[in-house]
């Protein structure tokens, strides 16, 4: 089934290949943004946040509600939702995940999983099961480059993702809180002894992760849709990006996202969307077996 007669014909069409490549990069950049939040939290807490997908869904519903209820454009909503989700993420870690899990890794898994069930079903109860989308005037605008039609919202999302990654990287490298985050991620006890408020740092990291998701949601909604389970579709791919890029690495997540985006796009083009998904996992498995710390990870 993988190789069908159409493949040869497709190979020859260079503009189709270029379109797929461009699409892979644009999609990958948004994947990277979603993975950034995950990788930050992993870098500091060393656990996987199961509530990541549900938080993304919540952010997407927030974008939808802002547009549908208040007429706020999704790009304008970035300014409102980013601080809001930062606060939400901060509060969740500080007042729910932290206290409930008593600092045990396996308990964080349980608590974040419990949270994801609560968030997903609260959204189901509140918004119902319908799949909703928003209609913005530029939703169908394209940038024409010869035979390439690049959807404007995706081009914006591409550059915005880079901007966010750069800002985050700057924040980690040059601010006090960034230094504190890095200190905690390297040596928790030592950081605590030198007076760094570890609980606060954890919560800030969670907040940053949720803020990244809010930005991603705003960038996605002009071309995507939302229902109570939509975030789950991005979780697995975000996991693979985090591991591929090296856990805790900001540039790693960005490059990992772009790689996964392109691999997904090309393998989808040539092997079909269904079997194409295997491409992602095989690359993921191979990278791990050959370079267990990921492409940019310091060490396992």
């Amino acid at each position: 089934m993988p190789f069908q007669p159409g493949c040869r014909r497709l190979m020859l069409q260079i503009d189709i290949l270029l379109s797929a490549l461009a699409n892979g990069l644009m999609t990958g950049a948004v994947y990277a943004l979603i993975a950034l939040g995950l990788t930050l939290v992993y870098g500091v807490l060393h656990v996987i946040n199961f509530a990541h997908g549900a938080t993304l869904t919540a952010a997407m519903f927030a974008v939808w509600a802002a547009h549908d209820g208040l007429g706020i454009d999704p790009y304008v909503a970035i300014l409102i939702l980013t601080p809001l989700f930062f606060a939400l993420g901060y509060a969740l870690q500080r007042f729910v995940i932290g206290p409930a899990s008593h600092g045990s890794d396996s308990n964080i898994l349980l608590v974040t999983l419990g949270l994801s069930i609560v968030i997903e079903n609260a959204l189901l109860a509140a918004f119902r099961s319908d799949t909703r989308s928003i209609d913005v005037p530029y939703g169908f605008s394209v940038i024409e480059l010869g035979n390439l039609f690049l959807p404007l919202p995706k081009v914006i999302a591409f550059f915005a993702s880079f901007l966010v990654a750069a800002l985050l990287w700057g924040l980690m490298a040059h601010t006090d809180i960034g230094k504190a985050i890095r200190a905690v991620s390297r040596e928790k006890t030592g950081a605590a002894l030198s007076g760094i408020p570890v609980e606060h740092v954890y919560a800030v990291t969670f907040g940053l992760g949720a803020a990244c998701l809010a930005v991603a949601a705003c960038l996605l909604m002009p071309t995507f849709l939302v229902n109570p389970r939509v975030g789950n579709a991005f979780v697995l791919v975000a996991f693979t990006i985090v591991v591929l890029g090296g856990m805790g690495s900001v540039p790693g997540a960005l490059i990992g996202g772009l790689i996964i985006g392109v691999v997904e796009s090309l393998s989808g083009l040539y092997f079909g969307e269904s079997l194409g998904q295997i491409g992602i996992f095989l690359i993921f498995i191979l990278v791990l077996l050959v370079r267990p710390a990921g492409l940019f990870g310091a060490r396992a």
């Binding site: 014909r9 699409n23 997904e264 989808g268 083009l269 969307e273």
Partner: peptide
């Protein structure tokens, strides 16, 4: 063939275009 859920249908569209 494509999975459910799919994050992106651009590739399917591109193949159709080709």
């Amino acid at each position: 063939a494509h999975p459910t859920p799919s994050r992106d249908m651009s590739n399917v569209a591109l193949r159709i275009r080709a």
